[in-house]
C-alpha cells in the first residue's frame, strides 16, 4: 500500500480491524502504562546515573513512592496566588493524559486514529507547559517568575525544532497523522535508515532532553537557585499539587520517549487490540523506552550542564538539523 492509501484508510477507519471499544480500552491501557512507566523511567535514569557515578542510588520505584507520599500530604496554597496555581497541575496531567491516549505507543491506532495528528500532540504538550508557566507566575515570587521565563524561553526555542522534525517524518508518509506515520514505517522498514530520519532523530533527542529538563539543559536534581529552571517554576506547588506536577512531568517524559521509539523504530507495536498483541506492545514499549532512558542517562552523566545562554545554541543546532532533514527528505523523495 502507498503511504497515502494507508493513512486514508486510517482516517476513514477502515484500516483498524478492531472496533471502538477495544481501542478505547487500549488507550486507557496506554495512559495507565505511561502513568506508571513514566515515574519508573525517571527512577531508572536516576539509578543509572547513580551507578555510573559509583553510588548505589535509590530504588527504581522511588518516584512512585514519592508520589504516594506527596498526594497524602497537606494542601498548602501560596498567599497571593489565584486559582491558576491549583488548576495548572491538573491541566498538565490532563493534557499529558490526552496526548498519551491518542499517540501510537502500545497500539498503532488507539482511540481517535484519524484525528491523532502529530501537531495536536505537540500543542497538547505546549498546553501543559503554558499551564505550568502561568502557575509559576501566579504566586508572584521571584523564583517562580524566573523559572517560568526560562522555561518559556527554552520551550520557544525547542518547539520549532520539534515541529520541523515531525515535518521531516511526515514528508515520506505524506501525512502528519501519527498512526499514519507509524503504519507507513512498519510497511516500509527500509525508511528507518533514511538519512532524513537520522537527522530528525538527533534533533528530536535534543528537544526531548530540553523538554524533559535533563542535563545539559536543566538539572532535575538541583535546587541551587541560580541554575534552576523547572524546579524554580514549580517551587510553590506543595503536597498533592506537587504530586500532580511530578506525575505530569513523568508522563510527558514517558510519552516523548515512547514517541521517539515508535516514530523512528516502530518494531513490536501492536497492530490490533487483541490481548497478546497488547501485552507484547507494552513489553516492547517498556524495553525501548528503557533503552532511550539509558542513552539519555549516559548523556547526562558524561556532560556538564550548559550555561543558560549556551542552551539556545544547542537548540538552534537542533532546529538547523531538522530543517536539513526536511531538505534531505525533499531532495531524496
Amino acid at each position: 500500500m502507498s503511504p497515502a492509501a494507508i493513512t486514508a484508510a486510517l482516517v476513514t477507519g477502515t484500516a483498524t480491524p478492531t472496533g471502538l471499544g477495544p481501542r478505547i480500552a487500549a488507550s486507557i491501557l496506554q495512559v495507565a502504562a505511561v502513568a506508571v512507566g513514566g515515574p519508573l523511567l525517571v527512577g531508572l535514569m536516576a539509578k543509572i546515573r547513580a551507578r555510573a557515578e559509583g553510588r548505589i542510588g535509590a530504588p527504581i520505584s522511588q518516584p512512585l513512592r514519592d508520589l504516594r507520599k506527596l498526594v497524602r500530604k497537606e494542601r498548602i496554597h501560596a498567599e497571593h496566588a489565584s486559582a491558576v496555581l491549583t488548576l495548572a497541575p491538573l491541566v498538565l496531567v490532563a493534557s499529558a493524559a490526552v496526548a498519551v491516549a491518542i499517540s501510537p505507543l502500545v497500539i498503532t491506532a488507539p482511540v481517535l486514529a484519524g484525528g491523532a495528528d502529530a501537531f495536536v500532540v505537540v500543542y497538547l504538550l505546549l498546553m501543559g507547559s503554558v499551564a505550568l508557566a502561568l502557575g509559576g507566575l501566579d504566586p508572584g515570587t521571584a523564583f517562580g517568575g524566573m523559572g517560568s521565563s526560562r522555561a518559556m524561553t527554552i520551550g520557544a526555542l525547542a518547539e520549532p525544532a520539534l515541529l520541523v522534525s515531525i515535518l521531516a517524518l511526515s514528508i515520506q508518509a505524506e501525512t502528519s497523522n501519527l498512526p499514519g506515520i507509524v503504519t507507513a514505517t512498519l510497511a516500509h522498514p527500509g525508511w528507518m535508515a533514511n538519512p532524513e530520519r537520522l537527522l530528525a532523530l538527533v534533533a528530536v533527542v535534543v528537544v526531548v532532553i530540553a523538554e524533559t529538563g535533563r542535563i545539559p539543559v536543566d538539572n532535575p536534581s538541583t535546587h541551587l537557585e541560580l541554575t534552576m529552571i523547572h524546579e524554580a517554576m514549580v517551587l510553590e506547588h506543595a503536597g498533592p499539587d506537587l504530586g500532580l506536577v511530578t506525575l505530569g512531568e513523568a508522563m510527558r517524559l514517558g510519552l516523548l520517549f515512547g514517541l521517539v521509539a515508535n516514530l523512528f523504530f516502530p518494531w513490536g507495536i501492536a497492530t490490533n487490540a487483541s490481548l497478546p498483541h497488547l501485552a507484547l506492545g507494552v513489553g516492547v514499549l517498556g524495553a525501548k523506552a528503557a533503552a532511550i532512558a539509558l542513552v539519555i542517562a549516559l548523556i547526562e552523566v558524561s556532560t556538564a550542564k550548559l550555561r543558560l545562554f549556551r542552551v539556545p545554541e544547542l537548540l538552534s543546532g537542533a532546529f538547523v538539523l531538522a530543517v536539513l532533514a526536511v531538505m534531505t527528505g525533499l531532495v531524496t523523495r
Binding site: 505546549l126 517568575g145 517560568s148 518547539e159 520549532p160
Partner: peptide, 24 residues
C-alpha cells in the same frame, strides 16, 4: 520554518501578558 518559529515565541509573549499582567 517561520510558522514553527513563531509558535513558541507567541506562546511566550502571551504567557507574559497573561501571567505578568493578571497574576501575581
Amino acid at each position: 520554518a517561520a510558522l514553527a518559529i513563531t509558535g513558541g515565541l507567541t506562546a511566550a509573549a502571551f504567557v507574559k501578558a497573561l501571567g505578568v499582567g493578571f497574576l501575581g
